[in-house]
Write a protein that binds this DNA or RNA. Structure first.
Lengths: 161, 161
DNA sequence: CCTTGAACCTACAGTCGCTGTAGCTCCCAT
DNA sequence: ATGGGAGCTACAGCGACTGTAGGTTCAAGG
């Protein structure tokens, strides 16, 4: 009943269990494997993926870092660091600092945007399109109060889950 | 009288001029045309696009709205409104309100994230990876101070232009 | 008139991080 | 033995572009 290679008590998870335990989607796990973020796992005789504890931990790390908004490239670097625990963690520090800077820059840009949008809404007199200040501001650069006008990054409307 | 052709003094811009005057890239203009956001312009004998003032205005509107972070679908709706100036501008109001709500939600999420990242950095003792709190927090859900843990939306590192 | 080189053309692949679909096969419980 | 849920591969699609390859057109200078 027990196989000789691995430990008899080692947990063996199919992909769905991994997904459930980490809150990741099955397709996402396969995607991570396809881009080399997760190593190829063992397979059953029927070609289905079987994971152990280390893979579960690794995926948990990835998921957690994604929840913090780190891009996959940064996560890749962070994962490499966990493989050499004796090294200095300066690089990790740098990655987080860079990310924090990016977050702060985004907050700043979004706050400027928030002010402009709020002003736009206030100035709308709820009449017709012809004399709508909202349309006016968008049509004519001069009518607009913004000083800088750096474009805001793409802003996807996320489906409310 | 001057119904032969449009107007002798009507400006005729090639795509590059349009790009320069609006701050849009040439490819982006062609992309907007391909998705039906800009109508197909007239062409020269040599098949090159030629635009008039109305197209320039329309693209300016699009560019401006994009700088405000509106997604193209919203811009499409706003453009439809400018075509019927007698209609009520309630819809425009709604689009802007929706966008503002989205912006505020993003600011909130990013500020929560900012706090967590800052705490992460503070707790790093600049030693080795093995005892790094940054790596620790990412590895172990329990070590983490966040209450909610909603994932933050994708955050591309934009190339610094 | 001819050449040069910038600007233009089409068509398509790549970006990021997934998500969804189609059309299979596999595994486990009844 | 069977039913259905879980798994498999491969590929298309999202948003909003950006970049590339390989060709054509245009305006200015010699």
């Amino acid at each position: 009943m027990t196989e000789f290679a691995t430990n008899a008590t080692a947990p063996r998870y199919p992909i769905g269990d991994l997904a459930r335990q980490t809150g990741t989607k099955v397709q996402t796990i396969r995607y991570y494997e396809s881009i080399g973020l997760l190593p190829e796992p063992a397979r059953t005789a029927g070609n289905q993926r079987i994971y152990g504890q280390d893979q579960l931990d690794r995926l948990g790390f990835i998921k957690h870092a994604r929840d913090f908004g780190f891009p996959l490239d940064a996560i890749r670097e962070l994962l490499e660091m966990t493989d050499k625990p004796a090294a200095s963690c300066v690089e990790a520090d740098e990655i987080v600092s860079r990310h924090l800077g990016e977050v702060r820059r985004r907050i700043g840009r979004l706050q400027a945007l928030e002010g402009e949008l709020a002003r736009m809404l206030e100035s709308c007199s709820h009449g017709t399109v012809a004399d709508c200040r909202i349309i006016g501001v968008l049509s004519d650069h001069e009518k607009c109060c913004s000083t800088s006008h750096e474009p805001v990054e793409t802003m996807p409307y996320r489906s409310p889950d």
